[in-house]
Amino acid sequence: MSSAERSAGTGRLFTGVAWAVLLLGLWLWGREVTAGPGGNSAPTTGDVAAVGRPLGVPMPPAHDPLEPARPDRVEIPSIGIAAPVVPRGLDAMGAVDPPPYAMPQAVGWYDKGAQPGAPGASLLVGHVDTETKPAVFYDLSAARPGEKIRVARADGSVAEFTIDDVRVFTRERFDPAEVYGPRQDGRAELRLITCGGNFDRATRTYDANVVVSAYLTAVRR
């Protein structure tokens, strides 16, 4: 589906209930180791696998992790995402606070977890849409393995990550350790997460989450 086709649909509300499914999993996992009219947010095939790693596409070696520095901005040139990053903590219920609805084009960084470029899996979350228009991660599901994600950091560096897979996790098959945990120990990784799957008009929620995984492959100064 083209970007124009994806954008042609009317806006959908990314509800707090949808975040609850995503972020409750983060809360439970974290305790062990230290969230409009309908339509689909592609890809929706299968419970988990969506794109995966393409055969025959070489992936670059991982770059050594960096010293911690907070993220200021994230860019995914291939799908036209360029957004400020705002730190987000936990709300009163113990779940990560997503960006406010007044900031639909901002990306939230879970500031109690890893910083992008440092060892571990850093979590970036964003809305897929609002009641009236697409939000920052509306096209996130169009990302593909091998494409780049750049995170500008407060120390003046730009951490460049390479996407290694794109998946859809349904509520029933959502695995917090798989989504939030690092794929390889000691590696600097990134997770970009939003809602996906089918939109239920009755409950005004999505039934899945799109998860883009990437790992650090270069650094620009």
Rank of each mutant, 00 (worst) to 15 (best):
T170Q: 13
G52C: 02
G9H: 09
L140H: 00
W29Q: 10
L23E: 10
S3K: 10
D111C: 12
S213K: 07
A208Q: 03
P60R: 10
Y138Q: 11
A202Y: 14
A202E: 14
I76T: 00
N209P: 04
A154K: 03
T34W: 05
W29P: 08
I193H: 08
V125Y: 03
V107Q: 12
V128D: 15
G156V: 00
P176V: 14
Y180P: 13
A106Y: 08
P104I: 04
P100F: 12
T170C: 08
T15H: 09
R150A: 09
R150M: 02
A177M: 08
D47A: 11
R12A: 02
A83P: 02
A135Q: 04
D164Q: 04
R183I: 06
A114C: 05
H127Q: 02
D155L: 00
D129C: 07
E189T: 01
F174C: 13
G186L: 00
V179W: 01
R88P: 04
S78K: 06
P60V: 07
G52T: 01
A18Q: 10
L26N: 15
E32D: 07
D91I: 13
Q105R: 11
G126I: 03
E172A: 13
L140Q: 01
S122H: 04
R153H: 01
R70P: 05
T15V: 05
P61R: 06
V48R: 14
A42N: 05
F174E: 05
P98D: 06
R201S: 05
L55Y: 15
R183H: 12
R204M: 12
G197D: 07
V85T: 01
I79R: 07
D111Q: 12
L24H: 08
G30P: 13
T10C: 11
S2L: 02
A142T: 15
W109H: 15
R204G: 03
G146L: 02
S157R: 13
Q184T: 08
P84R: 03
K112L: 15
D200N: 11
Y110H: 13
R153S: 00
S157A: 15
V212K: 04
V51F: 11
G56I: 09
D111I: 08
D164S: 03
L24G: 08
V107K: 11
V151L: 03
A106G: 09
A35E: 09
L24M: 03
P100D: 14
R12I: 05
A95T: 12
C195S: 09
T34N: 11
V48S: 15
E75A: 09
T217A: 10
A114R: 08
T205F: 05
P100Q: 13
T34V: 12
A118G: 02
D164N: 07
G56A: 05
A42F: 11
V179F: 01
P60Y: 05
I81P: 00
P100G: 08
S78C: 04
P43N: 09
G56C: 03
Y206L: 13
D165L: 11
A82M: 08
R171E: 14
W29E: 09
S141D: 11
R187P: 01
F137M: 01
D139R: 13
D91M: 12
P71D: 03
L66Q: 01
G196C: 12
